[in-house]
């Protein structure tokens, strides 16, 4: 089936099998191998991208269902040679070890910073709370890091959230 998809600002028209995930399309058809296939079940977050600016697990999205939408991958976060503030903060805070989860962490954090409102750990649901480390940990729980670099991931995101 033919679909139109804008990826990191560039429009594409692609003929895809209905079974293909957005993740496989990005990696295998467009050569954007930043987004990672960790679990392929939506449990690890390594495949996280932004769809219409909102973070999503690209492994759980069928490419055909994304027709007409706009996707941002980790390759699209930087502005030319200028790193996204989250990318710079991840380097500054040494927020990774093996790096496999990092593209998903970056896209998830970028989406998360734009999500208003409370989380499950917010005391008062009417608040738009400050992003404390506790809040960040809850909001980033869809991204696993097997190296356990969470402490530095949280401090990197905290710096950008300020």
């Amino acid at each position: 089936m033919d679909i139109r998809l804008t990826v990191n600002g560039r429009p594409h028209t692609l003929d895809v099998d209905p079974r293909m995930s957005l993740l496989d399309l990005l990696r295998e058809r467009l050569g954007l191998i930043g987004s990672k296939k960790g679990c392929d079940h939506g449990q690890c977050g390594a495949c996280t991208v932004l769809v219409e600016g909102r973070r999503a697990n690209s492994c759980l999205a069928l490419a055909v269902a994304m027709d007409g939408l706009s996707v941002t991958t980790v390759e699209g976060l930087a502005d030319g040679e200028h790193l996204h503030p989250l990318q710079a903060a991840f380097i500054e805070h040494d927020a990774f070890q093996c790096g496999y989860c990092t593209p998903g962490q970056l896209c998830s954090a970028a989406g998360m910073l734009g999500e208003p409102g409370p989380s499950a750990v917010t005391e008062n649901l009417l608040d738009d709370p400050e992003l404390t480390p506790h809040e960040i940990r809850e909001r980033m729980s869809g991204n696993l890091c097997r190296c356990g670099a969470y402490v530095n991931i949280v401090s990197a995101i905290s710096e950008v959230a300020r």
């Binding site: 973070r55 999503a56 998830s108």
Partner: peptide, 18 residues
């Protein structure tokens, strides 16, 4: 608020968006 809390305790930020 009970409903908001229930939804927020489910899944992850990514999955709730989808």
């Amino acid at each position: 608020p009970m409903l908001a809390r229930a939804v927020l305790t489910g899944a992850s930020g990514q999955i709730r968006n989808m």
